[in-house]
C-alpha cells in the first residue's frame, strides 16, 4: 500500500513537492484554492523571471504540466481543507470543493500556502488607486506580459518612470518590519526590461538600500552599466498629482541633503510580500505556529526551516517568509523528502 500525502497550495513550492512525491509513488492530494495551478506567478502573469530572464512559463508551466499529467497526483481545484484532525500519527482532513466534501486520511501534510502581494492602497502616502499612473510591480509584470506597456491614464507610452522600493516592507507604519527580499531584484529586472524595449523611457529607482543579494547583484550592475538606470537615495514620502498629467514623487535626496518633488509619467511601487489571510487561517486550522510577521513559523529556522512545530506537518515556500521562486522550489523538494520519510516511518 502506498502512502497518502496532502499538499496544500499549488504554487511553485507545492507543485514541486507534489511532483516529487508522485515520482516516488506516493498518492498526492493537491488542494488549490484557485481554479488553476501555479500560484501567484500564474495569477499575476509573471512574464520573465530573474536572474536569467527566462520565461516564467518554462518554470511554472513545466511544473503545472507535470502535476496535471496524471500520475499519482489528484488535484482539487477551487477547494480548501475545511476540517483537520490528528488521528494517531496520521491526519484526517476534509477537503471541501464545489463538487462536495471528501474525508481522507493522510500520512503527512505539506503546507505551501504561499504569500500575498502587499496591497499598496493600504499605505495612503503612495496614492495607489488614487492616480491611474501609480501602479505596482505585479501590475507592471502583467502589462509587460500582455505587451501593453502604456500609461493607464492616457494609453500613451511613458517617458519617465520611477520605481519606489520598500513599499509595504521595512516600515513599522504599515506593520511590516521585514525585508521582502525579492522586490529590489524584481524592480531592477523590470527597469532593464523597460529600458531594453523602450530606450526612450528614463528609469529612476528610489531606494534606501538595494538588496539584490548574491548573484542577483549582476542584474543591479547591468541595470546601471548597460541600461543607464539611475538610482536615487531616499524614500518617497508622498505622491501627488503634478502639471501636465504627471505624478509627483516627493522625497529627500539623502546624499545631497535636499528635498525634491519630481514629476514622473508613471510610478511603479515595489510592493512586498505578506503572509496574507491564509497564513493565520491555516495556522489555526492545523494547529501550527504563526510568527510575529504573519508568516508560518518553522520549528528551527536554521536546522529545519521546512518543519512546522507539529510533527508530520511540513512547510514549504513563501508561507514561511518572503522568498524567490527558486528557493520555493528547493523547499518544496526538501519538504517532500521530509514528508515522505515521516510517512514511511509511521506506516
Amino acid at each position: 500500500m502506498s502512502e497518502n500525502i496532502l499538499v496544500i497550495g499549488g504554487g511553485p513550492a507545492g507543485l514541486n513537492a507534489a511532483v516529487m512525491l508522485s515520482e516516488l509513488g506516493v498518492n498526492v492530494a493537491l488542494v488549490e484554492r484557485d481554479s488553476f495551478l501555479g500560484g501567484n506567478p500564474k495569477k499575476f502573469k509573471y512574464k520573465f523571471l530573474f536572474p536569467d530572464m527566462q520565461p516564467a512559463d518554462n518554470v511554472i508551466g513545466e511544473l503545472i504540466k507535470k502535476a496535471e499529467s496524471g500520475g499519482n497526483i489528484k488535484v482539487y481545484y477551487s477547494s480548501e481543507v475545511s476540517d483537520f484532525k490528528e488521528n494517531g500519527k496520521k491526519f484526517d482532513a476534509v477537503i471541501k470543493s464545489a463538487s462536495g466534501s471528501e474525508t481522507k486520511t493522510f500520512d503527512s501534510v505539506i503546507v505551501a500556502t504561499g504569500f500575498e502581494h502587499f496591497d499598496p492602497a493600504r499605505d495612503a502616502k503612495y496614492s495607489y488607486q488614487l492616480f491611474d499612473d501609480v501602479i505596482d510591480i505585479k501590475d507592471l509584470e502583467r502589462m509587460m506580459g500582455e505587451n501593453n506597456f502604456v500609461r493607464p491614464s492616457n494609453g500613451k507610452p511613458p517617458k519617465k518612470v520611477a520605481f519606489i522600493l520598500c513599499v509595504g516592507s521595512r516600515d513599522r507604519h504599515v506593520g511590516n518590519q521585514y525585508c521582502s527580499r525579492v522586490c529590489c531584484t524584481v524592480s531592477v529586472k523590470q527597469a532593464i526590461e523597460m529600458r531594453e524595449h523602450f530606450p526612450d523611457c528614463e528609469a529612476y529607482i528610489f531606494y534606501m538600500d538595494i538588496r539584490t543579494y548574491g548573484f542577483f547583484e549582476d542584474l543591479y550592475w547591468k541595470a546601471m552599466e548597460e541600461h543607464d538606470v539611475q538610482i536615487v537615495k531616499g524614500r518617497i514620502a508622498e505622491i501627488t498629482s503634478g502639471p501636465d498629467n504627471t505624478v509627483v514623487c516627493k522625497g529627500e535626496d539623502t546624499l545631497l541633503r535636499g528635498p525634491f518633488e519630481i514629476p514622473f509619467d508613471m510610478v511603479v511601487l515595489a510592493s512586498g510580500m505578506e503572509g496574507g489571510p491564509q497564513s493565520p487561517e491555516i495556522s489555526s486550522k492545523l494547529g501550527i505556529e504563526l510568527d510575529e510577521h504573519g508568516f508560518l513559523k518553522p520549528e528551527n529556522v536554521t536546522l529545519s526551516p521546512f518543519k512546522s512545530n507539529k510533527p508530520g506537518v511540513f512547510l514549504a515556500g513563501a508561507c514561511t517568509g518572503p522568498k524567490a521562486i527558486s528557493d520555493s522550489i528547493t523547499e518544496g523538494a526538501a519538504a517532500a523528502m521530509n514528508a515522505y520519510t515521516y510517512a514511511v516511518k509511521n506506516r
Binding site: 528614463e202 543607464d228 539611475q230 536615487v232 535626496d253 535636499g258 528635498p259 525634491f260 518633488e261 519630481i262
Partner: peptide, 15 residues
C-alpha cells in the same frame, strides 16, 4: 529650495 527636475540630458552629455 526643492529640486523639481532630474535633467538627464546633462548626464548623456558627460557620458
Amino acid at each position: 529650495r526643492v529640486d523639481s527636475e532630474f535633467d538627464r540630458s546633462f548626464f548623456e552629455e558627460i557620458k
